[in-house]
Each structure stands twice: as structure tokens, then as C-alpha cells.
Amino acid sequence: QWIQSKREDIVNQMTEACLNQSLDALLSRDLIMKEDYELVSTKPTRTSKVRQLLDTTDIQGEEFAKVIVQKLKDNKQMGLQ
């Protein structure tokens, strides 16, 4: 999976804004449970939030991952090649 192969780059480069947009999009599509949303959003640092989101992606699967990839594209953060 692309996200896993780029995990380190995503953790380093995903902005707080992109992270929040991803969470909002996942929530609005019922792809993330409120508990998982809280787990991510209550982490103390941006990098720990991104790591938690990516860990959740492993469990949730492809549809979940597609939303995150789309948000990275929207925010022009796909220089993660």
C-alpha cells in the first residue's frame, strides 16, 4: 500500500491543516469512528497525530486510505515520491 511505503515522508510532511481536512472528510463519510477521531485529535503533537491516523488506516482499509491520499493531493503534498 502506497501510504505504508511513504509513511515516514507523510509523518514528516503532512500539515496540521491537511490532517484536519482528512479527519473531517473521514468523519463526514462515516469512515472513522468517533473514538478513533478522538484518539488522533487528542495526541499532543502533529507527528503523533499523523502516526495515529496512519495506524488507523492500516485497520480501516482502502476507502479510508483513498480519502487521505486525496487530501494530500488537494494540499499539494504529493511530493512524497
Rank of each mutant, 00 (worst) to 15 (best):
W2A: 05
W2M: 07
W2I: 14
W2V: 03
W2D: 10
W2C: 04
W2K: 07
I3F: 02
Q4P: 00
Q4L: 11
Q4F: 11
S5Q: 12
R7W: 03
E8H: 01
E8V: 09
E8I: 02
E8S: 09
E8R: 08
D9V: 11
D9A: 09
D9N: 02
D9Q: 12
D9S: 09
D9E: 08
I10F: 01
I10C: 02
V11T: 11
N12V: 07
N12T: 09
N12S: 10
N12D: 12
N12G: 11
N12C: 13
N12M: 14
Q13K: 03
Q13I: 15
Q13A: 14
T15H: 00
T15S: 15
T15V: 02
E16S: 09
E16F: 05
A17T: 15
C18W: 05
L19T: 12
L19A: 06
L19Q: 08
L19V: 10
N20R: 12
N20I: 13
N20S: 13
N20Y: 15
Q21P: 01
Q21G: 07
Q21F: 02
Q21V: 07
S22F: 00
S22Y: 00
S22D: 07
S22K: 00
L23T: 08
D24L: 04
A25N: 08
A25V: 12
A25G: 06
A25R: 04
L26N: 03
L26K: 07
L27I: 08
L27P: 08
S28F: 03
S28I: 06
S28K: 15
S28P: 01
R29P: 07
D30P: 00
D30E: 13
D30L: 04
D30T: 04
D30S: 11
D30W: 00
L31I: 00
L31Y: 04
I32R: 04
I32D: 00
I32C: 03
I32H: 05
M33E: 14
K34P: 14
K34Y: 05
K34H: 05
K34S: 10
E35T: 12
E35D: 12
E35C: 07
E35Q: 10
D36W: 00
D36L: 01
Y37Q: 05
Y37M: 01
Y37A: 12
Y37T: 08
Y37N: 07
E38H: 13
E38G: 05
E38Y: 10
L39V: 11
L39A: 15
L39K: 15
L39P: 03
V40Y: 06
V40S: 04
V40E: 03
V40D: 02
V40T: 00
V40Q: 00
V40M: 01
V40A: 05
V40G: 02
S41E: 10
S41H: 12
S41F: 12
S41G: 09
T42S: 14
T42F: 10
T42M: 14
K43A: 12
P44H: 02
P44N: 11
P44K: 09
P44Y: 11
P44R: 09
T45H: 04
T45W: 04
T45F: 03
T45C: 09
R46A: 03
R46I: 14
R46Q: 05
R46C: 09
T47R: 14
T47F: 06
T47K: 13
S48T: 10
K49D: 07
K49H: 03
K49M: 12
K49S: 04
V50A: 01
V50W: 00
V50T: 05
R51N: 10
R51C: 09
Q52E: 05
Q52M: 07
Q52D: 05
Q52N: 00
L53A: 07
L53W: 04
L53D: 02
L54F: 00
L54P: 05
L54V: 02
T56C: 12
T56R: 05
T56P: 04
T56Q: 13
T57C: 15
T57V: 14
D58L: 13
D58I: 14
D58W: 12
I59A: 00
I59G: 15
I59C: 13
Q60F: 07
G61D: 13
E62D: 03
E62F: 02
E62Y: 00
E63A: 11
E63F: 00
E63H: 02
E63S: 08
E63G: 06
F64R: 06
F64L: 09
F64C: 15
F64T: 12
F64D: 11
F64E: 12
A65H: 06
A65W: 04
A65L: 00
K66W: 02
K66L: 05
K66I: 02
V67F: 00
I68R: 02
I68W: 00
V69W: 07
V69C: 11
V69H: 05
V69G: 05
Q70M: 06
Q70Y: 02
L72S: 04
L72F: 13
L72E: 09
L72C: 02
L72I: 01
L72V: 07
K73F: 04
K73R: 14
D74R: 06
D74F: 06
D74W: 06
N75R: 03
N75A: 09
N75L: 12
N75H: 13
K76E: 11
K76V: 09
K76F: 10
Q81H: 07
